[in-house]
Design a protein around this nucleic acid. Structure first.
Lengths: 195, 195, 195, 195
DNA sequence: ACGTAAGCGAGACGGTACGTCATGTCTTATA
DNA sequence: TATAAGACATGACGTACCGTCTCGCTTACGT
């Protein structure tokens, strides 16, 4: 019983596999994605995949972490106008969801999370957590600026703003338009009760 | 090219299949659920499944519709106290999600919806739609009672109340406690901005 | 447990089934012949086939008996020239085997005989037996005419004349030409040893 | 489009499959023989069978070639007494046909040949051909020794001696006794006409 | 520097489940 | 009650992938 030596790992193969995984999931969708096809597309032996990843989910997941981690690490914009800043961010998110390839790939990851508790935990820690922290930080700044009530639970606030958007996309409850996200932001900030 | 004659369909077989599907998905989870196992458990030939359902998703889905449709058709409670009514309903929902068997089964259905546009549409029309209408109706009653602002978009309001709860369950963003749902209701009603 | 009443049997259905069986076996060959296809082609319910025949072989077999029995019951020609008479008959047989439809159908029957002892027995009694008797009778006439040795075993003689032809056809050992059957007749009559 | 690499083929699996095929066909007979059962008995995945053989017939056939090819390659006996030599060989053949296991297995192969032209051709080339050559060679030796007429067509002669025996076995026209084969030999050599 | 031990591409292996097909039985309605 | 129609339970078919394994090959150390 021996485990592979990370020092000797081929970075070429690793990138090829992750890239192929993302590409394929965007082409055929998650349920039809197969390890054999990934290996083929990456020009790699199956064993090289099994050596380094424990499951299709873990692989796909790693692919996301890798490519997402490369891109966005920046804080959310803070122009002083909270509503405008949130709308800007959410509209961008909605647009990403609109791109068919990203749509398929992200659905894949979410399915994996829905079904696998361990991946969900890792997702929380490595992707959702940091992202959420940036969202929370922006809201805290708003609190400090007196634009948000001080006694609001920040976690709940984040959920109430981003939750509806994620949901609408994932469950296709309706079109994910800019108008919709604007309304969500406005309503969340203002509350439902009459003033 | 001939298609099966619904008039000759065996109701016995149909019920056995739907029941077995729900039972099995609650036992082994969606990804390990197989047509062969369902047929076996239902004491039915595979062909009888393939004759009447086009996919595993469609079957599972039909099972949900069947058993859900039998149960709940009632309106949401209206005691006059909107917040209390919403908390009651959402706590019940949270409790359902907490039951491991229902948890697994509902995750299965949601995964299916996430991946299959056609099923998503049917889900919207037959399960989510009616349910949503009852939620909307309760909120409209609140508007009439002066407890909710008249200019709030009811769709957005529903999303803002139920969305966070569904999300937290599906993505395991955190524990789905009664405290959490209470806070969601309070925050949604009150809004995030300082008064 | 009751058995069907032959008195009520539909002659129409019976003929349609037998005809369809022969036709189909000539089209698709024996291994691809199915009960369902026969029923379909005959415009008959499957049960009607299962009611009256115990197996695909028995049905096919019955079809042969029926149509063969109707056709040939005549004695072999006896012009006084034994060799010429035999060549005439064998050439006709070779020609029958050459017709693709008859070829396929007869192969079907022979396969059935090879595999099923009971059918083999019935074949011997009802088809091969009578045919063989006519062949033997022709040879006996030749003995009486002094054209054949009196101490030859007629059974063996029949086998030696017809056997090679049947074999060459069934196993495709070589082309079944008129020349070949002529040579078989000549050689069988003359013997292999030098005179 | 990729085809299997013969270099990597597992000899263990190959032998196990061929052996299992022969064993099973001897137990259940050809029509009830299934690929699934062979795979099971050989302790092999079905795909391993499908990878290397194109059909049940081809497999069975290969099994015969393999095991037959291992055994008999020797020439027919030549003691100088043609009739005695032939009787010896034919009696042995009759005995083989009498062994139930060999009987079933050989029937299987013959059915396959009857139904499949391609297999028939391979059979002719690889099994029947060489065997036939040995038979022909024995007869040619007899011609040289003056025991057989020089103008006899050897092919026809072989058919006339071995054909009746093969036929009687295959079609169960009668018991395949030593007496019968003796008579065939005698009659074939002597001819049917009076001397 | 060079043998050796690892990762690598390739792909055969024993399996499992797939979705299709044919079998033979059972049910229903028609005549 | 025999029939045409066809749904049913059963189970084999041939396919597609699974995850493991064994091959040579190449690459990078450790002596």
């Amino acid at each position: 019983m021996k485990s592979p030596d990370p020092a000797r790992r081929s970075e070429t193969a690793r990138r090829a596999i992750l890239t192929a995984a993302i590409d394929l999931v965007g082409e055929v969708g998650y349920p039809k994605l197969g390890i054999e096809a990934i290996a083929q597309a990456a020009g790699v032996g199956k064993q090289t995949i099994y050596r380094w990843w424990s499951s299709k989910g873990a692989l796909l997941f790693d692919a996301f972490l890798t490519f997402a981690g490369e891109g966005e690490a920046a804080a959310l914009p803070d122009t002083g106008d909270l509503a405008a800043d949130l709308k800007l961010v959410l509209r961008a998110t909605a647009d990403e969801f609109g791109d068919p390839r990203q749509d398929l790939a992200m659905r894949a990851m979410h399915v994996e999370i829905v079904n696998d508790q361990a991946l969900a935990a890792e997702y929380l820690e490595r992707l959702d957590g940091p992202m959420r922290e940036r969202k929370a930080e922006r809201l805290r700044a708003a609190v400090r600026a007196g634009q948000l009530a001080g006694d609001v639970d920040i976690e709940v606030a984040v959920d109430m703003i981003w939750g509806p958007v994620l949901n609408r996309w994932l469950h296709r409850t309706g079109p994910l338009t800019h108008e919709y996200v604007d309304q969500v932001v406005d309503t969340a900030l203002r509350g439902l009760q009459p003033r």
